[in-house]
Simulated assay, not measured.
Amino acid sequence: MADPGNAEDDIDLIRRSLREPEAFAVLFDRHALALHRYAVARLGRDAAEDVVSETFLAAFEHRGRYVPYQADARPWLYGIASNVIGKRVRQELARYRAYVRGGVDPIEIGGGLVEHGVGTLAVNRPLVAALAGLRAVERDVLLLVAWVGLTYEEVSAALDIPVGTVRSRLNRARKQVRRALEGTEHG
C-alpha cells in the first residue's frame, strides 16, 4: 500500500521510474518486506530472498507495461511473486510435506522464528497437509486472500483472472481445506 505520508502513489513512482530508474527503489523499499514475509511463508527463508529479487527484477523490466488500474502496486507485485513461486512449486510442496512429516516448520529448525506469526505454516500439520493438497492455482488465490489480505478484485488483477474465477477457486480451496481439517478432528 502506498505510504499515506508520501504524496507519490505507486503508479506515480512506476511512471517516474521510466524517466528516472532510481525512483523504482522507493517502490522496493515500500513493498519488499511484505513480499519477503509472503515468500518466507510460502517457500522458506532460503528461497525468499531470491523470490523477492526475481519479483522486483521482473517488475522493473516490465514496468513500462504496468496497467494503471489502481495507485497501489501490491496486486501487480504479488502476481509477479506468485508466478515466481509457481516456478518453484515442487520446492513449496516439499517444504509442506517435510513439515507434515516432522511437525516442525523447516524455518524453525534453523533456530530463527518466522516473522509472520499466524500467517506461517507453524499453525498445524493438518492445515499444511491441506495446503499441499490444493492445486497451485487454488493455493495462490487462497493465500493471497488469507495471508496477504488482498481483495477479490486485487487477486483478480494480481493473477490476471476474472473475479468470478477468483471466487470459484477460493470457494473450492476453502471447501477442500475445511474437509481436510474436519477429517482430523475425529482422528
Rank of each mutant, 00 (worst) to 15 (best):
I11C: 10
R15N: 10
R15Q: 12
L18G: 12
P21S: 04
L27R: 01
F28A: 08
A32G: 06
L33G: 12
A34Q: 12
A34F: 08
V40I: 14
A41T: 10
R42L: 10
R45E: 12
A48G: 00
E49R: 09
V51K: 01
S53E: 12
S53W: 07
T55C: 03
L57I: 11
G64F: 08
V67F: 11
R74E: 08
L77I: 06
V89N: 11
R90M: 10
Y96T: 04
Y96N: 02
R97P: 01
R97W: 09
R97C: 03
A98N: 01
E108M: 09
I109D: 08
G110V: 09
L113S: 12
T120Q: 01
T120W: 03
A122D: 07
P126A: 00
L127P: 00
V128E: 00
A136M: 13
V137E: 15
V137S: 15
R139D: 15
V141W: 06
V145D: 05
G149D: 02
Y152C: 06
Y152I: 09
S156E: 04
A157M: 11
A158H: 03
L159M: 12
P162L: 13
N171L: 12
N171T: 15
N171S: 15
N171R: 14
A173T: 10
A173K: 03
L181F: 06
E182Y: 05
